[in-house]
Design a protein around this nucleic acid. Sequence first.
DNA 1: TGACATACTTAGAATATCTAGGTAATATAT
DNA 2: ATATATTACCTAGATATTCTAAGTATGTCA
Lengths: 112, 112
Amino acid sequence: MDKGLIGGSTVLMLLSLLQEKEYYGYEIIKEIEQRSNCIFQFKEGTLYPVLHRMESQGLVKSYKATAETGKERKYYQITVKGKTQLAKEKEQWNAFTISVKKVLGGAGYACP
Amino acid sequence: MDKGLIGGSTVLMLLSLLQEKEYYGYEIIKEIEQRSNCIFQFKEGTLYPVLHRMESQGLVKSYKATAETGKERKYYQITVKGKTQLAKEKEQWNAFTISVKKVLGGAGYACP
DNA sequence: TGACATACTTAGAATATCTAGGTAATATAT
DNA sequence: ATATATTACCTAGATATTCTAAGTATGTCA
């Protein structure tokens, strides 16, 4: 999958997942992989920095916990700010995909 | 409109336009602006380098001509390689948007 | 014991876009 | 006549982002 395409939708997908429940990073990678039928396969080096950035922006918050398996995990939760951002990004996503379709389809209207 | 989103679809949109007919750079900006109802407003500094890159990759070729208005224009035409690439990018675009929908929608299947 | 999956991290390379400026001609409004 | 806006192209450098690649550590299975 082309990297250019993924870029703009990563945060949208992460926020959408985290609105359902809290996830830890590694779990997110696997979940997105499954849901997309392996179309999206995030590398750890790609995803973790994105989560860190989102946390620094206040879109998510995290806490550490040791799982029954003995491994330490960092769980991420969406914040109020994150939910607001999610709504915005969903809107943008819709406007974006509709607009691309229009350009490909050939429709044409004058701009205000 | 978020820059991240646009990135991956720029070449797709350009190739799609150029399959219809030849365009010059400035005309492409206006055409995409109109078709998208002003959702996409490419800056010249953004579009021209993309066209140059596409030409260096052999996806398009160009020639210069002076319009009746007295202004010199650089017209771009899609190449055979560009048409092949267009087909690929269309496929990728579909796979991409479907996958994002799946992630947002919550569907989940095991990967092979 | 060795290989693999889990789980997180970061530094630096590579890539891409945008900002901001430049050039130059014509058209339009004052 | 002059100022401004539109048309039409270009590029250097700042900015941002992603990916590559490596490191750390634990548990499981053959």
